[in-house]
């Protein structure tokens, strides 16, 4: 536990510009503090909120009265946790070397380019007119590809996979996420039924007594 908390800080901007070197540091020398992924996931949530609140009128189609902040927050956090959990557990089966901490750090760092490009787009959406929308699409595509690249390189380093195998495992991880979500939904429904059943029995007994 102490070992986990005493991990040194790894500059996040350095990670996205030099992913290969940085992820070696992360794997070999246990760089990367645990508060970093938390901050980055929070940033992702804030970016989504900023996009709704500060996005330019021309590009902001969302009806703000339909937005529910707790649900937005839960969505971001749940998807992040689900991905980390699914990837770590699947890669354990597929000879991956990464620990839960490694995967959590890599996934968080990989979100950073997307966050930066989204923030840039929020600023630009207040400047651009409708016919300049293509520029913003280019920026968001760049952000997405950059994020994907950093994520793949990171997962490849921490699991010590080949590049092809990394891509394959990420693909299966997504399927795993769907499976877990499905199982959770079933669990939720069954628990609900169970509670109703117990309640029914209780009220039946109360009425008969």
């Amino acid at each position: 536990m102490n070992k986990l908390l005493s991990r040194p800080y790894l500059p996040a901007l350095r990670v996205i510009f030099k992913p290969f070197d940085s992820f070696e540091l992360l794997k070999e020398k246990n760089y990367g503090a645990l508060w970093q992924p938390a901050v980055i996931v929070l940033l992702l949530f804030l970016t989504r909120v900023f996009k709704l609140v500060f996005g330019g009128f021309l590009f902001n189609m969302t009806d703000i009265s339909q937005v529910n902040l707790p649900i937005e927050f839960a969505t971001v956090v749940c998807i992040y946790i689900l991905f980390v959990f699914a990837n770590k557990n699947f890669c354990d089966l597929a000879d991956g070397d990464g620990t839960m901490t490694d995967v959590a750090l890599v996934t968080a760092y990989a979100l950073l380019p997307y966050i930066i490009c989204s923030l840039a787009n929020i600023v630009l959406s207040n400047i651009f007119v409708a016919r300049e929308q293509d520029f913003m699409e280019i920026i968001s595509t760049v952000g997405f590809l950059w994020s994907a690249l950093v994520g793949l390189v990171g997962l490849k380093s921490v699991h010590r996979y080949s590049f092809g195998k990394t891509v394959l495992t990420v693909f299966i991880t997504v399927l795993f996420m769907a499976l877990i979500a499905f199982l959770l939904a079933i669990l939720f429904l069954i628990t609900q039924q169970l509670i109703i059943f117990v309640k029914d029995i209780y009220s039946e007994i109360v009425f008969r007594m």
Binding site: F57, L58, I127, V129, A130, R131
Partner: peptide, 18 residues
């Protein structure tokens, strides 16, 4: 135009404004 949610005309006005 913003109040009317008239984005087509808002775009024209905003282009001139910018």
């Amino acid at each position: 135009f913003r109040l009317a949610d008239d984005r087509t005309n808002y775009d024209i006005a905003y282009t001139a404004y910018r």
